[in-house]
Design a binder for these strands. Structure first.
Lengths: 195, 195
DNA sequence: CTGTAATGAGACATTATAGTATCATGTGGG
DNA sequence: CCCACATGATACTATAATGTCTCATTACAG
């Protein structure tokens, strides 16, 4: 075949699936850190040829589009079950953080406005994500988990940044992976001062 | 004259000074948000012609270099007096935040690794800034302003992000300028939960 | 081991951005 | 008012990135 196509789950599309995942994964990581990264750098990071990149994604625009869609799905899949459990706001927050820290790149990627300058027509996904964050923020306020005088936009922003910071420090080896969620939760609720 | 030169504070270089400041200011803002921004976009944001941009900065590289140097100086000027005052760590922190929030763009700009991929030979400035942040973090720990079990790297990262977040939300009109420093300080020390 | 599909390398074409040169216009200090 | 000088607009070149294509090589299922 010239181009990989998804004809009814055929036998040997494992390889294709693997490279595709590889590309999406590495591209996400690279672009989250350096939005200016060229396709060359992305290909290099993913350890594939530039040509292969174009076999899977016909343009930079489409690559980014798929990254955004994938990020959105990951977040959706990770967070939906939590919201449906009808936990307390505090527990929801805790679970939220636990699942989002490992997805930090996706999370921040989707929150990053830089992307939208390269790929229009995705504002909806972004909005969804923001809406969900805002909902959680509101819930946290209602159940008095966070103080009433703190603006929701601040709550959401701080949460976003703590989660992304956690992801960055973990992937740079400065913070232990298992410590990160607790650190985020504690910093978010109680700050850094001693008990 | 062809190119503006700074010969002993001459009479009419006010205009030049103004445009130069204008460019540096707006370029900083634009690039902090979108490192990929083209010189076209920067010129547009600064409301000047692209040609003028090149009259003041012979290349993109030099523009960024000057931005970094300027950011570093601003931060240096703002923070040095504070450190020399020999305040308690807690008061140092408070003053620090007060002066840094308005400089959020510069601050974050200098912290952003993205810049170094465009302009080499400035790692020193970055290091200085980091060293200073780490020093403050250590001091905060020593004086038990922050808990002893929190890694300095986490302290520094959280502080950086809170300050930048404050600056962003202020410049987007979501948070009142005068509320921001207090919000940062409180979030940093006590988190968002109610008293 | 063998044949086929996926890949990598690299030679192109195309486009976007960086950078240069020129000239008409406009502004601000004298 | 006047004129030097900064600016904006535009046309131009250079360079880097995107996107297309071909072909030899490699990996893998049978």
């Amino acid at each position: 075949m010239e181009k990989p196509h998804n004809s009814e789950e055929s036998k040997s599309n494992n390889r294709q699936k693997r490279t595709r995942e590889k590309i999406l994964n590495l591209a996400m990581h690279v672009l989250a850190k350096k939005p200016k990264a060229s396709l060359n750098e992305i290909a290099e990071a993913a350890e594939i040829g530039r040509a292969t990149l174009f076999r899977y994604f016909k343009s930079r625009k489409q690559l980014i589009h798929e990254l955004v869609v994938e990020a959105d799905q990951k977040l959706e899949n990770a967070t939906k079950p939590i919201l449906e459990q009808k936990l307390t706001a505090r527990d929801t927050l805790e679970e939220y953080i636990k699942v989002l820290v490992p997805l930090g790149a996706s999370f921040h990627f989707l929150s990053s406005e830089q992307i939208y300058s390269e790929c229009s027509g995705i504002e909806d996904l972004y909005r969804n994500q923001l809406v969900r964050l805002k909902e959680l923020s509101t819930k946290l306020r209602e159940e008095k988990v966070v103080a009433a005088d703190i603006p929701p936009v601040w709550i959401a922003a701080v949460l976003d940044n703590l989660i992304y910071t956690a992801w960055v420090t973990v992937s740079e080896g400065d913070i232990a992976r298992n410590d990160a969620p607790g650190l985020v939760l504690h910093s978010f609720l109680n700050g850094l001062s001693p008990v």
